[in-house]
Design a protein around this nucleic acid. Structure first.
Lengths: 203, 203
DNA sequence: GTCTATAATATGATAGAC
DNA sequence: GTCTATCATATTATAGAC
């Protein structure tokens, strides 16, 4: 009994290692720029062994993306219609910024995909993402109608949050080249908090 | 005399066609994702003929990037110390947004490079770009010291302008997937103008 | 499950005719 | 200057031993 190894254990361990290695390589080089060799080496496996777990490079990439998209929308979903409007928005900004700090590779994986025209996730953009954004834009507009936040274009407001927060992950190398030693994540939260307070608080 | 073709003419024409085709292909697929075949086809040349003008794929990419970087900083350079602070900043935002609208491929070429760690232009970031940003950040701070605009982190202010404007070029496919038929460049200028007025006008 | 060896293809670059 | 044909290499994927 003790001698019979549970194959599921090894499989789970290897699959996790592969996905982590693939995230590292795909986010740094894009789909075409990444090679199966690099991913296998980063995962500590031989190339054929890696392809034993995932049948193709494409399959690894798909698995990664589908895992990412599954949680990518959670921060926006968490924006609560019952909460205090300005605080809900500021909390969303904070969450997105924390994701850029803690999961920059995921952000860059996504960015690589979008910049190149979203060939693999256009469906996600036009279905799940659009539906959620439409819902939350309507919520933002209702808050504006009630005079609880200043009136701005709700879709551009959401785009602004994405771009301002994801910039610190996607353009990390540029930000750090300019800030030299300073950690952008030390000072960005206060900047963004102030920005959205000023934008959304009626004068 | 009339029979002797000026080779410079043809060369200039073909070189221009190659760079335009390369911009199209590199910006859409990244350096590794682009193939010499694709570029040659887009330029209307055979692959060997293309390589007659540029010795390698790398050389084409370098020529493109160096041409881009040469003008990439112009809008920021144009921010005039002698001008009215808020208007100078708003004009910079407008210029950057117009560049995203009129030259999205250039923006995506740059974005592809940065997202993947800027392997080819790290030197530019830490020298030319950093020097200019340092200079303009000092200018912004002097305006804040004089009380002519609200006090915010000057570097994050510049990052915010980059991210908010370039987002409409780099993430164009996502923006349009969500806005459906609406043209983002119709409504973005007013949104950004309002945003920076509220941020920088003292309460 | 994991490996070595290798097949099959894609791609960057060159040779050489015209 | 431009082309067809081709080389050399990189890369995805598979075969088959262990």
């Amino acid at each position: 009994m003790t001698k019979t190894r549970r194959p599921t254990r090894i499989q789970a361990r290897n699959r996790a290692a592969i996905l982590d290695a693939a995230l590292e390589v795909f986010s740094a080089h894009g789909f075409r720029g990444a090679t199966v060799d690099q991913i296998a080496a980063a995962a500590g496996l031989s190339k054929p062994n890696l392809l034993y777990y995932y049948p193709s490079k494409e399959a690894i990439h798909e698995a990664l993306l589908s895992r990412l998209l599954d949680t990518w929308l959670d921060p926006l979903r968490a924006m609560d219609p019952a909460g205090e409007p300005l605080e809900e928005i500021l909390a969303y900004v904070r969450r997105k910024l924390e994701m850029s700090r803690d999961y920059p590779r995921e952000s860059r994986l996504f960015a690589n995909e979008i910049v190149q025209g979203a060939p693999r996730i256009l469906g996600f953009l036009t279905s799940d993402l659009k539906a959620l954004v439409d819902e939350k834009a309507a919520l933002l507009e209702s808050w504006m109608d009630e005079g609880r936040i200043a009136r701005v274009h709700p879709y551009h407001l959401i785009f602004s949050i994405w771009s301002l927060t994801q910039h610190y992950a996607d353009f990390d190398v540029q930000v750090r080249a300019i800030l030299d030693g300073d950690d952008p994540f030390e000072t960005a939260p206060a900047f963004l908090d102030n920005l959205y307070r000023r934008l959304l608080t009626s004068a």
